[in-house]
Nucleic acid binder design. Structure first.
Lengths: 214, 214
DNA sequence: AGTTTATTTAACTAAACGGTCAGTATAGCT
DNA sequence: AGCTATACTGACCGTTTAGTTAAATAAACT
């Protein structure tokens, strides 16, 4: 393995002995691996190799495969919720708030295609055993609030907010989670390319907004 | 599944010696196992045990784990497409056709919760390697046709049919695929129970129809 | 310099898994 | 009855994998 910049420089950022950096790199690699395989089928060896360390190093930072998985899952959701909070949707009218949230969710999914797969695999394989329900409910709570505000203001039609919130998240995830099955619909085009991504974003927002508006 | 005995023998139909039945049982068990674990993590031993035979018996019927998986995946999709064909949606106006198709898809997903997970896992884990694209395109083709007819007749607004079709399928799958993550939204209720299922179906159809109508 | 402490490794174990094989039991045929 | 093709089993093999151990290396602190 290529050890770069082994000695030299009083700059103390020697990555190969930087505990925090190694930990984060391990979580990155774990995210990539778990996103494809899920918890059970993930290979610790692969995560180690991806990080450029040995398997034993993982066990220096994490007690077990399970614990590594939980840490990765939590970091994943916390990161996504952080984005949602920054939007300050309460200040916007429900209509604009939902558009903004939709755009952000779609962008988030496209920039980190792992997160959709990870949550999907967590549900299917682990039956939600490690799903941090509090964090999850915050996301759905945000959508539900907007929908309720919209119904009160008359901007949205009368709808059941929870079912609608689920359908909204479903719409925002499916294109990315199932992309490998969907690619045959656009032969020769990249689903995550600029063109398709832009049109998909527009179409999804249009569909949902038309679906909830009065 | 009633197994018809080919001959009248002293002992009544010995199921454990019925080749076709065993094969189907194996595919059933494989479906249940693969739907939770995906291809890689599935345990042949578990599939055998579920069927009530030994592991070697699986290899009597299927060459490998991979072949068993492919057979199961194909049977899965063929079964679902059979339902869609029976609907004869071409005879209906686009509006009614889409409602009928949505209702059928949602019912199909609720009756066989495996199918959504299987397709999701196929995309995420295997990157669509075994996805029978011809079969898959038939389903999307059906939706796209209806949408195009609706735009021509003026019943539906101008939309991009492929993206919309993907979003429709996403809406119809997500509730079932991600149910284990979603259950916290309805504490104490069963997501596949009559009450929630009925309201979810209604809400989903309403959302999509409002989303596409002019 | 030397000693301690944090970080990483190679080598290993025990269990699990996919797949094989030689052989057994049964049904149908002549 | 004996023969043959079909359906199935139990024991086994080689490989892979999560997790462990003791030792090595590098940084930090006297």
């Amino acid at each position: 393995m290529p050890v770069i910049n082994k000695q030299k420089t009083t700059k103390s950022t020697n990555q190969s002995r930087n505990s925090e950096a190694t930990r984060n790199q391990l979580l990155d690699a774990a995210e990539a691996e778990f996103a494809v395989t899920g918890l059970i089928a993930a290979r610790m060896e692969a995560i180690a190799a991806q990080t450029g360390v040995t398997k034993a190093t993982i066990y220096y930072y994490f007690q077990s495969k399970e614990e590594l998985y939980q840490a990765m899952l939590e970091r994943c959701l916390v990161g996504m919720l952080g984005l949602a909070e920054q939007l300050q949707l309460d200040c916007l009218p429900p209509d604009a708030a939902l558009v903004k949230l939709l755009a952000t969710m779609l962008q988030c999914m496209s920039e980190n295609p792992h997160v959709g797969s990870i949550l999907c695999l967590e549900a299917v394989q682990n039956k939600g055993k490690y799903y941090p329900k509090q964090l999850g409910n915050i996301l759905y709570g945000t959508i539900i609030e907007i929908l309720e505000r919209g119904m009160l203001s008359g901007a949205f039609r009368q709808l059941e907010p929870r079912h609608t919130a689920v359908n909204i998240v479903g719409t925002c995830s499916f294109y990315f989670t199932a992309q490998e099955n969907l690619k045959y619909l656009w032969p020769g085009k990249r689903l995550l390319g600029k063109e398709l991504l832009q049109s998909h974003t527009q179409e999804s927002i249009d569909l949902i907004m038309a679906g909830v508006r009065n």
